[in-house]
Design a binder for these strands. Structure first.
Length: 300
DNA sequence: GCATGTCAAGTTGTG
DNA sequence: CACAACTTGACATGC
């Protein structure tokens, strides 16, 4: 079965996550801070429940959880742990319900930490912050039952080989739980499938194939080859492959094909993906509307 | 209310 | 050299 996945948020559905900033929090004393953070964390996990109910009702098989679900969890000046929050009990209960619901209904959950997470950086501070953030994502993943923590390989710094070597070295410093969930994804400017498949193989982690990025940054591998090699790697771990799909906002012939369009043009869905046992996250600005539209277009 | 500026963080390519 | 782009705008502030 091919399953489509929804990313993070909704366009039309009244399912909204909440956020705050460190600047706001710093106006309050610690007791007030944890009170506000508690409200936000509880609201956000309850909102995940709404989101999963929606995706289950609409035959959507995967959901990507937005990174700041626990707002400012790793911010150096306001960081906190769930067991500091007044509503920790409720938060933990809702998370248990989320794990149960997604397991019973076979909904895959993933995380995609944002661009500040760079395991290949030559700057020690950057790597330190990355590890801190990835460990937070690991906590989130364990609480919610997410299976994948997916990141990019980072910058080139004029020497991709050296950068990937640093990435592999820094990977060792992650906890076992995070290592078991981490995946690498090809990006649109630096690292293609050909660069990352061997790295993933070395690290014994899966490779998330983003075909839009591959079209922005082609390499010697064809789309079919990248697909096959990614599937082989996922299957070697007994796991279902994860792919990403988006359409270019300005068309493939424009100067900049990178920005994502509101919807997926069915032309951009590779015909050789049909019939495969894979999860395809739909990265489109119209969110749930784009997923439903593609389901109709592909006759799923 | 609504418009506007701000928010922790990295790296690259474009105009 | 400023800014957009990347998985994603939401929130605080000032009128």
């Amino acid at each position: 079965m091919l399953r489509l996945g929804l990313c993070c948020i909704f366009k039309n559905e009244p399912i909204k996550f909440r956020q705050t900033t460190a600047k706001t929090l710093k106006q309050f004393d610690r007791a007030e801070q944890v009170h506000l953070l508690s409200e936000l964390c509880l609201h956000n996990v309850q909102t995940i429940q709404l989101a999963l109910r929606y995706v289950n009702d609409h035959n959507i098989g995967a959901f990507r959880i937005l990174s700041p679900l626990f707002p400012r969890y790793t911010h150096p000046e306001v960081a906190y742990k769930i067991d500091e929050l007044p509503q920790q009990g409720e938060i933990v209960e809702v998370c248990a319900a989320i794990r149960k619901f997604s397991r019973q209904n076979d909904i895959r959950l993933s995380l995609h930490p944002d661009q500040f997470n760079v395991l290949s950086s030559p700057r020690i501070e950057v790597v330190k912050n990355t590890i801190r953030e990835l460990e937070y994502q690991g906590v989130l993943a364990d609480m919610l039952g997410a299976e994948v923590i997916n990141i990019h390989a980072g910058g080139q710094y004029g020497n991709k080989k050296e950068a990937l070597k640093r990435l592999k070295e820094n990977f060792k410093h992650l906890s076992r739980g995070v290592k078991a969930k981490l995946t690498l994804e090809n990006d649109d400017v630096s690292y293609g499938p050909q660069d990352l498949l061997p790295v993933c193989s070395d690290l014994s982690i899966p490779f998330v194939y983003d075909i839009h990025h591959h079209r922005c940054l082609p390499d010697e591998l064809s789309e079919e080859e990248a697909t096959q090699q990614s599937i082989a790697l996922w299957q070697s771990f007994g796991r279902e492959p994860y792919f990403h799909l988006s359409s270019p906002k300005f068309g493939w012939h424009s100067k900049k094909p990178k920005p994502h369009a509101d919807y997926i043009n069915p032309i951009d869905f590779p015909s050789f993906w049909l019939g495969l046992d894979i999860s395809v996250d739909i990265e489109a600005k119209a969110k749930e509307l784009a997923v439903l539209q593609l389901q109709r277009d592909l006759d799923l």
